[in-house]
């Protein structure tokens, strides 16, 4: 319960709420059912992947094209899970005890782990994360339902405002999470290259702009690391 109560103590909950309000509206305007939308939140539990599935399938991409775009966006979950699990592992912890923690791991939880866990005794950490993670999922299911219902009933003006929540919330939370120069360059180039890649109309435009922009950003990171090493 301690974990579940902590969702009240985070601004990110508000951002998450806004994001999932937007996802609910987006799913409605892309022609998906409310049950489908809630299932995507419960079982995917990753905002970017959900938006990719909704926008790609909604705009006529094939299942394979969406699956590839989703899986590439989800690679980032791998390092998150890898870095979060050691924080709560004890001598007695079995792998199956950590399955739900792995499922709940997404960017918000990942950030909050570093903030909250130092104050939580190690043996209570798994329970804490279950409470926090499931609390966040519940908040998002409610937000989805509200966003979906509102999008069906709002004036076009306010419905447009609701759809705009998604890009704004993601842009600023990503910008805030940028820790290194490589992250900043990846964000900027990713924004700028997408309109160019979209001209290709390949069905995997997002992947093309993402891999190109990300690799250039990584190249800059390497080049700078090289310069620093030479100076030292």
């Amino acid at each position: 319960m301690w974990g579940a109560r902590s969702i009240g103590a985070t601004v990110l909950t508000l951002v998450l709420f806004a994001t999932y309000l937007g996802i609910g509206a987006l799913a409605h305007d892309s022609g998906f059912s409310l049950g489908w939308t809630l299932a995507s939140t419960a079982f995917v539990w990753a905002g970017p992947a959900q938006i990719i599935v909704i926008t790609t399938l909604g705009s006529g991409a094939t299942v394979l094209q969406s699956a590839i775009a989703v899986t590439v966006s989800a690679i980032r979950l791998f390092p998150m899970v890898v870095s979060v699990l050691p924080l709560m592992r004890t001598e007695q912890t079995k792998r199956r005890h950590l399955i739900l923690v792995a499922h709940l791991t997404a960017v918000t939880l990942w950030v909050e782990c570093y903030r909250f866990l130092p104050q939580v005794p190690r043996i209570r950490r798994i329970a804490f994360i279950h409470g926090l993670g499931l609390g966040l999922v519940s908040v998002c299911l409610v937000a989805n339902t509200i966003g979906y219902t509102l999008a069906a009933n709002l004036t076009p003006l306010l419905a447009a405002g609701m759809l705009m929540l998604t890009p704004l919330a993601f842009l600023f939370s990503t910008a805030r999470n940028c820790r290194e120069l490589a992250d900043v360059i990846a964000l900027l180039l990713g924004l700028l290259l997408f309109p160019l890649a979209a001209l290709l109309n390949s069905g995997i435009d997002i992947l093309i702009s993402g891999v190109v922009a990300g690799t250039i950003a990584y190249g800059v990171h390497r080049a700078r690391a090289g310069v620093v090493r030479v100076r030292a």
Partner: peptide, 26 residues
């Protein structure tokens, strides 16, 4: 580091897609 950069750029691409090729009421 590379994976994180690509993942960030993909996310940026999605943000750009919603703004440049907006769905529904937007």
């Amino acid at each position: 580091v590379w994976v994180r950069a690509v993942a960030t750029a993909i996310l940026a691409g999605i943000i750009a897609q919603i703004v440049v090729q907006p769905p529904g009421a937007l």
